[in-house]
């Protein structure tokens, strides 16, 4: 079966990855893609735990959810601070750290 659960996870994962790469403008969309990455991974973990009949995957999934929540809050906080200083959140202009 082509559309099994792993392929769903992989599709979601790569969509979110490409969303991070190809997005040049908006940092909010990048954060959202990051959340989607976490979601796809935790989905994969839950599915594997069912598939393998093991509880560890679900525990990891729960932990990842909390980490993702904390991380997104910190990320949004940084975003706010950044916006306060620069008055925009365009990714293209975030190139002050050139080599």
């Amino acid at each position: 079966m082509f559309l099994n659960s792993f392929s769903v996870f992989l599709t979601l994962f790569f969509i979110s990855l490409l969303g991070m790469f190809l997005n040049q403008k908006n940092i909010l969309i990048m954060l959202m893609s990051l959340e989607m990455l976490f979601l796809s991974i935790s989905f994969n973990l839950i599915y594997s735990s069912f598939y393998l009949d093991d509880i560890a995957g679900q525990i990891f999934s729960l932990l990842i959810l909390t980490v993702a929540a904390a991380e997104s809050s910190i990320g949004l906080a940084i975003l706010v601070v950044y916006y306060r200083v620069r008055h925009n959140i365009t990714v293209e202009f975030m190139n002050l750290m050139k080599g």
């Binding site: 790469f21 190809l22 997005n23 990714v91 293209e92 190139n95 750290m97 050139k98 080599g99």
Partner: peptide, 15 residues
């Protein structure tokens, strides 16, 4: 060349 690689763009770094 290596210096030019570091563009400062986050998306490049992620790549």
């Amino acid at each position: 060349f290596i210096i030019v690689l570091q563009t400062g763009q986050i998306t490049h770094y992620i790549f």
